[in-house]
Design a protein around this nucleic acid. Structure first.
Lengths: 165, 165
DNA sequence: CGGTATCCCATTTGATACTG
DNA sequence: CAGTATCAAATGGGATACCG
């Protein structure tokens, strides 16, 4: 698509930013410590003009911060803002899913581990206010304060579908 | 891009499937209980040929299961497989990020709640083997058994970058 | 209903060249 | 180094028509 939708659902909104694969890969590289234009380019294998576009958008969106680090103004670094760093959660979620369902056990190219124990981490979960992990079945999606009629209808419809069962 | 990369990293692999926004939206709809071709089409506003393509790919990938539910073979339903249902984690992660950093507090179109208490869920976390949520700073990404030289280099490089600080 | 086939247009892409 | 400019080629997009 590439074309923007205007659904109020945050998923659709977020996808307007991250619909492009390059963008995810750029952010992944940032988590690995990459901050320079040429490094992104080399590691990802992206064309310069595309990288330039994507980085500009990400800076506009407040996900990266561009700093001048050159002695004479010819070098820049791109670092994740808090907003950008918060993308670690979706990114890790995708990684764990891919490890389990694409790579498969024993073939993972990248693993997540607990720093202290070195143990592998394979599970990600919603956490309650009291700090307890919540089972997927105990989670409900509901319409929020920013919902429009379309979303209200959708949840109404979802309720009806469940009743029919 | 659309073009497939062949990096072994599970993120890149997963993006080969989900690089397309339509795909995420289709899966989102599936979580809302949608299972029919025409419903997907109407709710997402996607062209028929595109929907057909995307669904075919998703069935091939083992994310949806296509069942014949028609009396005379003219009706089908698409349901998430366990592999597909596991995408709830990345999807929720994206939703929470979008709620916090795009919609903002009080403007969320869709919220996640705990079924029993009705309390809003805003946090997602990696969970240790012993069932404890892990802080982001306590997580390390390391090269796994399926890593190639490129990935090993990347982590080597990341270590060097940290030492410099 | 659940698609497939076809067409045409807008966009995206990557390569190359160029610049401060 | 960190881009911008340009451009031909490929791709993705939606609309329409058609089918079992």
């Amino acid at each position: 698509m590439t074309q923007t939708h205007n659904q109020p659902c945050a998923i659709a909104q977020a996808l307007n930013i991250f619909g492009d694969n390059w963008t995810w890969l750029i952010i992944r590289e940032a988590f690995y410590g990459v901050s320079r234009f040429s490094e992104f380019q080399r590691n990802i294998g992206i064309a310069k003009n595309l990288l330039s576009n994507r980085l500009s958008t990400l800076v506009e969106q407040g996900i990266f911060e561009k700093k001048n680090v050159g002695e004479n103004g010819t070098r820049y670094s791109y670092h994740l803002t808090p907003k950008g760093a918060a993308l670690r959660t979706p990114l890790f979620a995708i990684l764990l899913w891919g490890n389990e369902y694409i790579s498969g056990d024993g073939n993972e190219a990248v693993l997540l581990t607990e720093r202290n124990t070195g143990r592998q981490l394979t599970t990600m979960s919603l956490v309650s206010e009291s700090g307890e992990p919540i089972e997927p079945n105990d989670v409900r999606a509901i319409a929020g304060p920013g919902a429009n009629q379309e979303i209200l209808d959708k949840f109404e419809n979802a309720r009806n579908l469940k009743k029919q069962k």
